[in-house]
Every structure is written in C-alpha cells, then in structure tokens.
C-alpha cells in the first residue's frame, strides 16, 4: 500500500480548522485518482511456475514475453522451472504467500489443484495454460493456450505446395487439445493446396522430452514416404535434415539451425496475452475470461516466420495465397476452424 501514508497527511491538518478541512477535502478529491495512477507505475509482482525447462518451446515463448515486460519496467518477474506436477500446488502457494499479484504457468496436469489454489487466494490473479475454459466460480483464474491455428494453417498451405509425394509426417508428444488443434489447422492448409488426397501419417510418442524417440518416429515416417514433416517436437527436424526432406516448425523459429530443412514456422507470441493480463490486474479488473483468443493472429498472438532461406523456393502464387489469407484472417473475413479432436493417420 504505497499510497497509504500520503492520505494520512491530509487527515492531520483537517483537525485544525473547518476551513482547512474544506480545502483538504478538495485536495483529497483531486488526488482520489492518485492511488491507482501511482499503483500503475509500480511494477506488478509476477511469478511463473513451469513444469519444464525454460528451453522448452512452449514455455520459452512465455518466458520471453515476461522478460520483455520486466525490461520495460512493467513487472517484477520471478520464475521456477522444472516443477513436477506433484509439487506444482506447493510452488503456486509459495508464490502467492510471497505477495505476487499475478501467477503464470501451465496447469495441463494439475487443472483441479490449481483452481483450488486460486480459490484460496482470491486477491491474486492466475493466468494459466489450460485445456479447459474459464469458470465463473473461480473469478481470479483465467485460462490461456497457444491458439495459433491461424499460423499453423498458413504453414499448411506452404507445406501442401512443397510436398511432392503428397505424404506428410506429423510427430506429436501427446494428443492434447493444444497439439491437436494446430495439427488439424495445418492439415486443413495442406489439403487446400495439395488436394484432398494428401496422406497424413500421425504419430504420438507419449513424451514431451524424448528427442531421440521423436527422431526415430520421424525416420519411420520418412521411410513410409513422407517428404515433409510437421515438427511438433525437438528431434523431428533433425531426422528431416539427415534424410534431406523438409520440415515445418511449430511455436518457435528453428530455421537458423536447419537452413535447408525448415521451410516455414508458425510462431506463437505470448505478449498480447500477458500484456492484457498485466493491464487488467493493474486496473483491478482481472476476471475469468478466455485469454486463448489473444493468441489469435488478429490479436498479434501468432505469426508465420519469415521464409528466409526458402524465400525463393516457395512458389510465388503460394506466397500470394498466404498473404491473401493472412490479410483475411486479420480482418476477420476468414476463420480457421478450431478442432481439438485427436488427429488420425489417413
């Protein structure tokens, strides 16, 4: 409460005379807006709890956005990585007790427990990656997710144009909504440019962190005829590079590491989501709303990475189509379907 002593001062002279009371009253009224403005300039205390290392693709995007907000002076940022799901609730509570006003994280494995913590700390705002929607019963808990299907769809258009065998390999970790919807959007894009007879090989490796296994799975798909791979996991682009086929990136841009392999990437930008939450918390109006929409392309939450080394290899008519669709998505005249079901091989 940084504004409290200042208000006290005004009460001291009021005891001296009625006249002064009136004057002080006027000043007090004039400064009524001050507390919130002062508060807005104070950096907001934000803490993040991640179940994976900062290097993990998904978390890295949140970490980058939070560090940017910290560098701007908007927030104070502390974060803990590699917290196991069994320990997640404890770390959340510790950060709440430490006086943080906004808690960031990912509760895909602890959906219920995280909501229980939110109930216990009604004055703290929780912005959590979640497979579920907001719940009015927990008004301080808002879910987000990487709804970057717009960008995934655009990369699909490019992939569909680049495949010659019309056979696409896709390796994912687990079929959770966040993974599924991006795969579906990507597949929709591919079908549009490669035709409905495009074949998809979909595999899940049952782990978020087993690049050797992801790589083996990708090798198997290349053996079965895939000539472009959707790289949801680390390891897939490596297999593509070794066998001289192409890959499409997801969430982060890895073209610098695989200049001859990664054609295009769908990038996630967490900044619109986080900035909205910071603004809402500072204004005291943070509520349980679906922050997933701030990952949409028209909110600036996702984009397609520059084609870079593939600028000259992607046909011009496809580049034009991508630009046209991108504009249509941004002005709202085109919507990419959101499908959270588990994708299947075809």
């Amino acid at each position: 409460m940084p504004d409290f002593p200042k208000n006290l001062k005004f009460f001291t002279p009021t005891r001296r005379s009625l006249l002064k009371t009136a004057g002080a009253g006027a000043v007090l009224a004039a400064t009524a807006g001050l507390p919130t403005r002062l508060f807005a300039q104070e950096p907001l205390k934000v803490a993040a709890v991640y179940t994976v290392p900062f290097e993990q693709q998904w978390v890295s995007r949140i970490h980058i956005a939070a560090n940017a907000a910290k560098d701007r002076g908007d927030i104070e940022y502390t974060a803990t990585e590699n917290v196991s799901n069994t320990d997640y609730e404890r770390v959340m509570r510790e950060y709440c007790e430490a006086g943080n006003k906004l808690i960031l994280g990912e509760v895909f494995g602890v959906e219920q427990a995280a909501r229980d913590v939110a109930r216990d700390y009604p004055e703290v705002a929780f912005l959590m990656g979640s497979s579920f929607k907001e719940d009015a019963a927990v008004p301080n808990f808002a879910p987000f997710d990487n709804y970057i299907q717009d960008a995934s769809y655009l990369t699909g258009l490019i992939a569909g144009a680049m495949t010659q065998s019309k056979n696409i390999g896709m390796v994912g970790g687990f079929p959770i909504p966040e993974v599924n919807r991006l795969m579906h959007a990507f597949m929709a894009g591919v079908r549009e440019t490669a035709g409905d007879d495009a074949k998809f090989q979909v595999a899940f490796i049952g782990s978020w962190f087993d690049p050797p296994k992801a790589k083996e799975t990708a090798f198997a798909q290349i053996d079965a005829g895939a000539d472009i791979l959707y790289a949801e996991r680390f390891g897939v682009s490596d297999a593509a590079q070794e066998r001289g086929v192409l890959a499409i990136g997801n969430v982060i841009d890895t073209q610098a590491d695989y200049p001859e392999t990664v054609v295009a990437s769908a990038l996630w930008h967490f900044e619109p989501t986080l900035d909205r939450a910071i603004e809402q918390v500072k204004a005291g109006s943070f509520t349980a709303e679906d922050y997933g929409v701030y990952s949409f392309m028209k909110e600036g939450g996702c984009s397609i990475a520059p084609l870079g080394t593939f600028e000259d290899k992607v046909p011009d008519e496809i580049k034009a189509l991508v630009a046209e669709r991108e504009a249509a998505i941004k002005d709202g005249s085109f919507t990419v379907e959101i499908n959270d079901e588990e994708p299947k091989s075809s």
Partner: peptide
Amino acid sequence: FDAYQVRLQQITGGAVPYQLFL
C-alpha cells in the same frame, strides 16, 4: 519391437489407438 511399433503405427491409418503401439 520399438522400431516396429512406430512403423506399424503409420500403416494402420489411425484405426488403432496410438497408446497400444507405444
């Protein structure tokens, strides 16, 4: 078995849940 299951997963066309292969 492991190398076989990732290959088998691709030819069943999604008719069998992937967990069974894993």
